[in-house]
Design a binder for these strands. Structure first.
Lengths: 217, 217
DNA sequence: GTTGGAATGAGTAGTACTACTCAATTTGGG
DNA sequence: CCCAAATTGAGTAGTACTACTCATTCCAAC
């Protein structure tokens, strides 16, 4: 089917998982396979070798998959990137798409889907886990809502982003104020503005969002 | 080295990861390999087939690895169980050991370590990721402290456990009170007792512990 | 059949965060 | 240079949780 060997990067910090992906691909498709165990090495290999396709884990030591996508977006690199993650968080999916991901696969996905995704993306298409598609449709949060939510997250200022990062580490307002050399009142005001932008209300809704979506900040 | 084929169960909800483990073992060691994609199937296979060794993920749909260990503890089943998880949480490790795990491996572990662990455990020994051993030693929380902490967690009453479960789902005191048909004051008192047992103090320390150690409840 | 743990509930005081409004200063881009 | 956005800070009121103390009921084990 595919006349030439596909060159492929597998980036994941779990050696056993990389072995699974590698052997699955090799068994069914001739391919030149590169491996990376952290985000920095993955980025380096993509820039130096420009493989046809890269299958990248979202959460890795060093740079996350989303950070790699952001850095390569509009950089002229032709490598097509598929995110492969265990996170069913739809916000991560919308973020990935918004920074140029060509595919989004859940780790719970069947072996067959990975081959399919690599082929399709290699030929210029896009691939999304059917399980995730179902989630997007079924969930109470409808599609438009979530796209808007990602736009809101992207609209956060750097001070606001900083606070979300610290919140995702369970820091209190007091601690954040100390770290940023600000008054507690300032942090409180930033929090209020963030909650406003993200349409969050109630007790610990903001810290919950920060922790459940920490890769977005 | 090993005269007879080892029979081995691999339980993990990620097909690609199972493929990695399976092929890694098969390449280097003759083995009869079974697979399970969730906790219930894993438990069923262990009870029916009693494989020599079972490599089980901590977090799975259905029963978790820790729940499987608890159910099999003192049940007479001879299968030796190795937990294989990405969680570096030392509390999970101490809990696993306290319910009879023979090995505790991090997913970031080298391929070689898995083979080693299976062999050692098969022959009656125990195996712990060197990375985790390092963590246990280095961390500010010393070994004795953490063992005591697990004893404290195990000493929680059923009402207290229930509250920790609900807290790990970000429920507020108000919501928990409604769910359990209690007064908010009762929940507050239970929370105080739990914080006392676990030696937790300050703002959101209890909900943080509940979320970061949810598999313990 | 009493004793101790568990579960239930309350009083009171203090801290942390939310939910509004308002305002001064700083800074980057047209 | 100027304007809009970002950053910084505060007033006030209310809610959620912490940190103690204390009391009642229930149940199971000795």
């Amino acid at each position: 089917m595919t006349p030439d060997k596909i060159s492929l990067l597998i980036a994941d910090d779990h050696p056993l998982f990389r072995a699974g992906v590698k052997q699955t691909i090799e068994k069914l498709e001739p391919a030149e396979i590169y491996e990376a165990e952290d985000g920095d090495k993955a980025l380096q290999i993509i820039r130096e070798i420009e493989p046809d396709v890269a299958v990248i884990d979202l959460r890795m030591p060093g740079k996350t998959g989303l950070e790699i996508l952001s850095e390569l977006y509009n950089s002229g690199v032709t490598t097509k990137i598929i995110l492969l993650t265990m996170h069913k968080n739809v916000n991560y999916f919308y973020k990935a798409i918004s920074v140029g991901a060509k595919g989004y696969l859940l780790k719970e996905t069947a072996v067959h889907d990975l081959i399919e995704a690599v082929k399709i993306v290699y030929h210029g298409g896009t691939f999304i886990s059917s399980r995730l598609k179902a989630l997007i449709k079924s969930e109470k949060s409808d599609e438009v809502q979530n796209k808007l939510l990602i736009d809101s997250v992207n609209s956060l200022t750097s001070a606001e982003r900083q606070i979300m990062k610290l919140l995702s580490e369970w820091k209190t307002n007091c601690e954040i104020a100390d770290i940023l050399f600000n008054s507690t009142r300032t942090i409180e005001n930033h929090r209020a503005n963030i909650s406003d932008k993200l349409n969050l209300h109630g007790a610990h809704s903001l810290i919950q969002f920060a922790i459940e979506n920490r890769e977005l900040f």
